[in-house]
Deep mutational scan, measured.
Amino acid sequence: MDPFVVLVLCLSCLLLLSIWRQSSGRGKLPPGPTPLPVIGNILQIDIKDVSKSLTNLSKIYGPVFTLYFGLERMVVLHGYEVVKEALIDLGEEFSGRGHFPLAERANRGFGIVFSNGKRWKEIRRFSLMTLRNFGMGKRSIEDRVQEEARCLVEELRKTKASPCDPTFILGCAPCNVICSIIFQKRFDYKDQQFLNLMEKLNENIRIVSTPWIQICNNFPTIIDYFPGTHNKLLKNLAFMESDILEKVKEHQESMDINNPRDFIDCFLIKMEKEKQNQQSEFTIENLVITAADLLGAGTETTSTTLRYALLLLLKHPEVTAKVQEEIERVIGRNRSPCMQDRGHMPYTDAVVHEVQRYIDLIPTSLPHAVTCDVKFRNYLIPKGTTILTSLTSVLHDNKEFPNPEMFDPRHFLDEGGNFKKSNYFMPFSAGKRICVGEGLARMELFLFLTFILQNFNLKSLIDPKDLDTTPVVNGFASVPPFYQLCFIPV
């Protein structure tokens, strides 16, 4: 058959498939802009700032609406009420993970971030239990974070109060905490193996944040037939998995079943207990991918939040002064901060919360999916439909947070200066898919920041009023603009 005829037939089939998918069930789905064949609503979305586009569309179609990214149908949730109703009140029905062709290629359905069903539930339950087990290797997770915080302070001392970009050092600290939990080992910041790991993690975040990856996920045929950065992403992930597998083999040879040292040991012990169960989800494949998931999810998000926190503290020296006064009063100079201190430091706690609220790190979270046909607000959402959640619409709700575009710790303080919780605080998402490392991340943010401010004054290279804190939105995360500062020993 003539190649031209084959091409026309293929394009015609794709067009018909697109029209059929977009028209099927439209009477039951939430409203939304009319999609174009094949490309859907992509032309109506700013790929570099999806969150802003969703906010604009919500003003037209309401808090629940339908979009098509290519052939992929998505239902968008915008605003606290619908997000709570879906992710919390109907948590089980909305607990699936959205379709990610690239991740599915890399992870093969294993791990904790992109798995679904029984596998996801069992691996998540085990990971939560293990991360909360403060007795691994007779050292609590808090001990590990405190140790890394001391190392971080010593690295900052080496800058000798000269101007520096904190990106690298602030990236090393949370990565080392995860390494300590998974591998029972922290690395020197100049260790070549550690630097290679950091390089792969950072490069992957840069790649994932590009519009090209959005295109690959919406048109998965590209993955096999086109060159691009997605190939580098898959190569980096394969490198990390190979490295983790080597460490798993080392653990198998040296493990003491009665004295687990780290996450890998705990997983291997669980595998041993379930070795007679042919349906067990505790396999080497799941261990390797879960460890890679924890490394990827637990490094860049925390380091970016820390980097943004220091920029905001530079911009608002009056806030920094209040935090340091609270540190001096509650902790002093002669001991290290600990998590028990947080309950006695409402202002510092409010500042950490406000940093996370203000920066809105992951504006749309990772997409969910419905696990069955769901009736939601008089609409029928078919099983498997991807759910896109606007966390921006919750964290920047102007009824809950007056002047949401302003950095103001009073958003989390009552009139008496006591810490005030808010149900709208969802930087880790909400419901059954809430970030498994939430507790660890909150511990790291509090301890790293208090250790830094206990030991250093922060000095800006320019007038604080002239510092730009506008986030650089890159399609996946909101990151701070480049800046330098000086760490002046107190």
Rank of each mutant, 00 (worst) to 15 (best):
S12C: 14
S12V: 14
C13M: 15
W20S: 08
G25P: 15
K28G: 12
G40D: 02
L43P: 09
L43I: 07
L54Q: 01
L57I: 10
S58T: 08
I60T: 14
G62H: 00
Y68P: 02
L71N: 07
R73Y: 05
V75Y: 01
L77M: 09
V83G: 03
A86E: 02
I88V: 14
E92F: 08
E92Y: 08
S95F: 02
G96K: 06
R97I: 02
L102V: 14
A106Y: 08
N116C: 07
R119F: 04
E122H: 08
I123H: 03
M129S: 14
L131T: 05
N133Q: 12
M136R: 14
K138Q: 15
R139I: 11
S140M: 07
R144K: 07
Q146P: 02
C151Y: 13
R157D: 10
P166E: 01
L170N: 01
L170R: 01
C172R: 15
C172L: 11
V177T: 05
I178H: 07
S180C: 05
S180T: 10
K185M: 09
Y189L: 07
Q192T: 12
L197F: 10
N202G: 07
N204M: 07
R206L: 09
S209H: 14
I213K: 07
Q214Y: 15
F219G: 03
L245T: 08
V248P: 01
K249G: 08
Q252L: 10
I257F: 12
N259S: 11
P260S: 06
R261A: 05
R261E: 05
D262F: 00
I269R: 11
M271W: 06
E274V: 08
Q276C: 13
Q279R: 10
S280P: 06
S280G: 09
E281W: 11
F282R: 01
L287F: 02
I289L: 12
I289D: 04
A292D: 04
D293L: 03
L295D: 00
G296P: 02
T299G: 10
S303Q: 09
S303P: 01
R307T: 11
L314I: 14
R329H: 11
V330F: 08
S336R: 13
Q340P: 06
D341L: 05
D341C: 05
R342D: 03
G343E: 15
M345V: 03
V355R: 00
P363N: 02
P367Q: 02
P367G: 05
H368L: 05
T371W: 03
T371I: 08
K375D: 07
I387G: 00
L388Y: 08
S390P: 06
S390V: 12
L391K: 00
V394N: 03
V394Y: 02
L395V: 03
H396P: 02
D397L: 01
E400T: 07
P404A: 14
E405V: 10
F412Y: 04
F412Q: 00
D414R: 06
A430Y: 04
K432T: 13
E438L: 07
L461F: 12
L461N: 13
D466F: 09
D466T: 11
D466R: 10
G475M: 15
L485T: 10
I488L: 13
V490S: 05
